[in-house]
Design a protein around this nucleic acid. Structure first.
Lengths: 112, 112
DNA sequence: CTTTTTCATCGTAATATTGCGATGAATAGA
DNA sequence: TCTATTCATCGCAATATTACGATGAAAAAG
C-alpha cells in the first residue's frame, strides 16, 4: 500500500482497509460471486468465465487469499478455491459496524 | 485502476469496486470515522487528528468525494466536508447484498 | 515413460497510488 | 492594504497494482 503510515491506525481500521482493499477490484468481486455461485470451486473455470488470462486470475486469487477471504486446498493437479466463511463472517460484521456508524445531527444539517 | 478491463463487468460490480476502492485505505477509514464523529465537519481538523500532511488529507478527501461518499461545501475560507448520506445508504445496501451472498452447499463442504 | 492439464511464480511493462513540499487562490482579521 | 489562515492543485519520487507471456512443478492421461 505504498509508503503507508500503518502504525497510526488501530486494528479495526487496518482490518477494514485490508478487506475493502481485497474487494477493490471488479475482477475480484466477480471472482467471489462466481465462486459462491458455483457448485464446485474449480479454479480454472474462472479463467473461462472472466476474459482475463490465467496468470491474472491467479494474482487476484492470491490477493483474496492473503486477505483471508478465500481458502485454497490442493486437490490433485488443480486447486480448490472457496470462500473462507469464518473470515467472510468477520468481514461482514466489521463492514456492517462501519457502514452503520451513527452520524451526529450537525452532519445531517450541513453541506445542504 | 491500472490497465483494467472495465467493460467486462456489470454496474453493480463496478459500483462495489468503486466503493470498496474508496474505503481501501486506513487513512480514509479514519477520515470517515472522524467526520461522522465530529460535531462539525471542518476539514483542517482532520490534519490535526491524523498525522498526515494537509496535502495528503486533501487527496484522500478527493478520492472519497469522487466515489460519492463525501460531500464538500465551500463555507468561507474553509470547506465543509460531510458524509453523503444518500450515497452512503446506497453503498450500505450494495455491500450488504454482496456480503450476504448465499453460498451453495458444495462450498461449505470442500476446502476443509 | 511421455504428454497433457492445471495452476503458481517470475519477469516485464504500463499505469495508479501514496505521500510530501511548494505554489496558488480566496476569505478573514489586523 | 497586508498578513494569516485554509484548502486545492501541481509536480516529484517511491511504491503498488494490473495484466500478460513464459517458465516450472506436479498430478493425470495416454
Amino acid at each position: 500500500m505504498g509508503t503507508s503510515k500503518l502504525h497510526n491506525y488501530n486494528k479495526k481500521q487496518l482490518s477494514l482497509a485490508t478487506i475493502t482493499h481485497a474487494l477493490a477490484h471488479p475482477a475480484r468481486i466477480a471472482i467471489l460471486q462466481f465462486i459462491s455461485k458455483q457448485k464446485s470451486c474449480i479454479c480454472g473455470s474462472i479463467v473461462d468465465e472472466l476474459s482475463l488470462s490465467q496468470a491474472t486470475i491467479s494474482q487476484h486469487l492470491k490477493v483474496l487469499k492473503e486477505a483471508g477471504l478465500l481458502k485454497g486446498t490442493i486437490s490433485g493437479a488443480s486447486t480448490c478455491y472457496c470462500i473462507n466463511e469464518k473470515e467472510w463472517e468477520k468481514a461482514k460484521v466489521l463492514l456492517h459496524q462501519f457502514m452503520n456508524t451513527k452520524f451526529n445531527a450537525p452532519n445531517t444539517s450541513c453541506c445542504s
